[in-house]
């Protein structure tokens, strides 16, 4: 059993949660994730480890379906049943020169430890953070000390550049030579960033988040075609060279369980009397 230490709403439908765990902080590196199970009935929910401290770790969650709603409804002081981690391979952090890190939506959260580590490794770090609108833009102040430059984009123009993150990336790439790009966000965003990176012959790491079951490489649910090879995201990834990912197939697989998810959510809301945490 692992205690929820704190829970804070940092944007609409987005929660910043610290959990107690005796060991994960000792081993977790940027880019890695964990899987948690809330209780006997729960799914196994994969989440990126955003930060750690002695005996604790931090996750940032967007509520999109039953499992994330249930998780964000757990109150500080209450416990969750299982946490396993760190899983996946750490990001390949090195001193590259100039790098550009791009986060979209809740993807900004998993990008944070990577940006921080890149800065610590001595890179010039350009950040692009994108959201649908101003209220949904998370962690901006936390990023600032770790960035040399920051671009913000919003779909509706309520903050920064109006448009998607690729608009800002275009500007950056015109201005200077970027050695490596990291992009984390919705699959469609990662796809378009990867296409732009490919045109510029720039390595572009993306962190894939396909549906997972075990997260230990024994089911193949998380498979993705990368460079003509089938890879299991949980053990071979989660980061891959986005230029090699077969995106369209992956994006369609993401919605495989849509009917079931909808049913689960509707049932859950009914049970909760239509209201949530």
């Amino acid at each position: 059993m692992y205690k929820v230490i704190s829970r804070e709403a940092i944007a609409p439908d987005t929660f910043d949660i610290w959990l107690e765990h005796p060991n994960i902080h000792k081993r977790a590196k940027p880019g890695q994730f964990l899987i948690l199970r809330l209780d006997e009935f729960s799914e196994r929910i994969p989440l990126t480890i955003v930060s750690t401290a002695e005996g604790r770790l931090r996750v940032i969650i967007k509520t999109i379906g039953k499992s994330t709603y249930k998780l964000c409804a757990v109150k500080p002081g209450e416990t969750i049943a299982d946490i396993v981690g760190p899983l996946g391979n750490p990001s390949e952090i090195d001193r590259f020169g100039t790098v550009c890190v791009i986060g979209g939506g809740v993807g900004i959260a998993p990008l944070f430890p990577i940006a921080k580590a890149l800065k610590e490794a001595g890179n010039r770090v350009i950040g692009i953070l994108g959201a649908a609108k101003k209220e949904l833009l998370i962690m901006k102040d936390e990023f600032l000390p770790h960035l040399d430059e920051l671009y913000i984009t919003t779909d509706d123009g309520s903050e920064g550049i109006k448009g998607t993150v690729t608009v800002a990336l275009q500007k950056v790439l015109k201005k200077e030579k970027v050695e490596v790009i990291w992009a984390i966000g919705p699959m469609v965003m990662m796809k378009f960033v990867s296409l732009m990176a490919a045109e510029n012959n720039t390595l572009c790491w993306v962190s894939l988040n396909p549906i997972m079951v075990d997260g230990t490489g024994m089911c193949g649910a998380c498979r993705a075609e990368v460079g003509e090879e089938v890879k299991f995201t949980c053990v071979h990834g989660p980061e891959f060279d986005g230029r090699k990912v077969k995106w369209d197939e992956l994006i369609k697989r993401q919605y495989q369980y849509r009917e079931e998810e909808k049913r689960a959510m509707e049932d859950y809301l009914k049970e909760m009397g239509g209201k949530n945490a």
Binding site: F41, E43, S67, V213, C219, G220, E260, A264, D267
Partner: peptide, 26 residues
């Protein structure tokens, strides 16, 4: 699907009792 995924969902995660249990199975 691999049989491992299908059976893990059903057995370990009890998807045959979905939606009482959260994990779905196709």
């Amino acid at each position: 699907f691999s049989a491992s995924e299908f059976l893990t969902r059903v057995n370990l995660m009890k998807a045959y009792l979905f939606p009482k249990y959260d994990t779905p199975v196709k």
